[in-house]
Computed example of a mutant assay.
Amino acid sequence: MIVTMTIQINEELRTYIDPLSAEEYEALEHSLLAEGCRDALVLWGDVLVDGHNRYALCTKHGIEFKTIQNTRFTSMDDVRLWMIENHLGRRSVSDFQRGVLALRKKEILQQRQQALQARQAQQAETDQASDGPAPAQPVVIPNRQALARAARLSSNTLGQIEKIHKAAAPELVRAVRSGDISINAAAAVAAMPAEQQVAAAAEGRKALRELARQAREAKAQAKSPAGDDASNVAEGAEAEPPIEAIEDYPAEVARLRRLVASLTEERDGLKKKVMHLTVALAEARNDK
């Protein structure tokens, strides 16, 4: 007898990671239709932890899939940390999303540390016996450089993402996710009043670049009353941090290599489109 189980969808877990783009979702659908679902869906009990898009598409098209239980989870925080580590290793995750995930990991570990300290303080007050329970293992919270390295980012980039995470209006965050503004420029814009962030995001890329320029000029003028530094900021430029400010060179080199690879792939894709359009245009002319 085949026993079927009902898979539960937890909305928090389903939306914990940024959704796939329309193109990525379509590519996944084509792959599943052509090759089937090769990777097992990860469950915690009957709750789906990893494979939400695959589950939706397999259910839609009647594609068979396998499941696997992760028996190491003891709490939702364990699930979240596993999801973070799992997605940090995926190439398709953007720099901004990796930074956000690294910051979420830090927040979870900090909360665990605070909870542990509270329990230890309570134990010290209520249990004065000489033989108490064995002390719990301390929670290790990575520093920024370690977090950045795990996320394959430079420490500077992670610091910029943290500024955006703390101070950016939701409209500015969406602009970063969509690529309308760079992480570096968004970190500068996040220092501006929220209403200016919202207005610039509504107007688009040009307005966001202009607001980033204004933010950098204001910062430069605050450091130098004479304003000499501000005059050197080119209009619309999205300047990278100075070389001497980069704390983690290997991570920065890796980030730049990924950027070059991404741009190269985009260039090759555009070349193919031009070639196909040229062929189609030639065929259309011949038909005439």
Rank of each mutant, 00 (worst) to 15 (best):
D131E: 07
K223T: 13
S182Q: 02
L211A: 08
K206R: 15
S154G: 15
A230R: 06
S130W: 13
Q97Y: 00
T74E: 03
P241W: 05
T59I: 05
A284V: 02
A251S: 13
V42I: 02
L32N: 00
A27I: 00
Q120T: 08
A102D: 14
L43I: 02
D77E: 04
Q196M: 03
R258F: 09
K273E: 15
A187V: 02
L277E: 15
G36V: 05
L109K: 04
K66F: 01
V49L: 02
A207V: 14
A151C: 12
I68Q: 06
A199V: 02
E12M: 00
D50A: 00
T67Y: 01
N86L: 07
A207M: 03
R14E: 04
R80A: 05
M83S: 12
L147K: 01
A199H: 07
Q117V: 09
S92P: 00
P142A: 00
D131Y: 00
S262Y: 09
W44R: 05
Q117G: 13
D95G: 10
H61W: 15
G204W: 04
I108Q: 10
A27L: 02
I164D: 04
Q97L: 08
D50C: 07
R119A: 14
D248H: 11
Q113R: 10
R80N: 00
G132C: 02
I84L: 05
R285L: 15
A230P: 08
I108Y: 06
T4I: 07
I141V: 14
D268G: 08
N53V: 12
I17Q: 01
E12T: 10
D180E: 14
R267M: 03
G51Y: 04
R54P: 01
F73G: 06
V233F: 15
